[in-house]
Design a protein around this nucleic acid. Structure first.
Lengths: 189, 189
DNA sequence: CAATATAACTAATGGCATTAGTTTTGTAAA
DNA sequence: TTTACAAAACTAATGCCATTAGTTATATTG
């Protein structure tokens, strides 16, 4: 192993920092190479080009998000609090890693989806604890993910305006959604 | 007026078709020029460069979406049906104009947000008809938009799998959300 | 200490957006 | 009808980017 000190994971980490600093489109092989003090062609020893880098970054991001969400489950005692903790972790990740988050959403093949499976499982477990399972739970998780991603996207788009109020709207929306879920679940009994 | 037959609107329309055919990133000045049978620099007589084109395309798309949603209100008699018609129009637009839709979501300044204001108004009106207004309605519209955009994004990302089932999940989610909204609204009385 | 694999390098190509400067052409005034 | 002007096309050139091919340097392994 010659020229140690630079492997794929290190490259990915540097690229991730670039993404969060300059935005998802700011990640170019040129600036990444400059950042690593090598010439652009040298990058091809670690990644297979820009599309490959983007794909790997997306997987890297989804996996990081999963680990942070899992970590967040440590806090929170009751069931609803645990779900709330998952929500907070998701929002926190999107805020601290805007570029990485954006890359995870630029639909890029099946490996990114696979990497997101564990996150779905995490949510399913919490919903089960709250009495929502089976077919309803599938719908509910999709709804939950949509609400979370939707709010992140929209609040980013609107940018200024009333920054903090977005959190309030999200809480309101989640409360309404969960309340409706419970009502529907009870109706099925 | 020299060399008539090519104005900004025509350019935008051609670019929109390209976006929906080749994807949002497929819109380059090179292919747009080829499509219009002119050289790339000639485009600068109608637009001020690629970022400007993207911004204008986004506004173009949001406005088109608004007009289609407004049109959709013609159908549907009862209040919930009208809201449902808005939802259908939104989904239909996203499906028929994937590239244009994507461009409307790539947050690009205040003019795009302004163009989206009428859509918010459309939703607010329907919610009012359903007994949801005031501060709650603001939250509700944000929730509604998040759910819609979230589902469009996620179903696009997942791609294969169970295509049609997404619609079912969305309906389920909307039903739960609206039910929760009503419950909360009644609770405030 | 020698051999090898790995990772860096230089050089070159083609595509892209963009700018500067020039030519063409349709319309409107003389 | 002719002339003048302004708008929109053009050519030429620049610089940045990703990518490929071929070469050189170096760290580890035997």
């Amino acid at each position: 192993m010659p020229r140690a000190g630079l492997d794929e994971n290190f490259v990915l980490q540097a690229a991730a920092e670039l993404a969060d600093t300059l935005g998802a489109d700011g990640v170019t092989l040129a600036v990444l190479a400059k950042r690593l003090n090598i010439r652009p062609p040298s990058l091809y020893n670690h990644i297979q080009g820009l599309p490959d880098l983007r794909r790997k970054l997306a997987v890297y991001g989804v996996d990081l998000l999963y680990r942070e969400m899992k970590q967040a489950l440590e806090s929170g005692v009751s069931k609803p609090e645990k779900l709330q903790a998952l929500v907070e972790a998701y929002l926190s990740f999107a805020e601290r890693h805007p570029g990485l988050y954006e890359l995870t959403q630029r639909s890029l093949g099946p490996e990114v989806r696979s990497a997101g499976e564990p996150i779905v499982q995490l949510m399913l477990e919490q919903l089960k604890q709250m009495g929502i399972y089976g077919r309803s739970a599938i719908h509910a998780v999709r709804g939950l993910r949509s609400i979370l991603h939707g709010f992140v996207s929209l609040s980013k788009e609107e940018g200024f305006g009333l920054p903090y109020a977005w959190k309030e709207s999200l809480d309101y929306t989640l409360r309404a959604f969960l309340k409706g879920l419970k009502t529907m679940a009870e109706g099925n009994k």
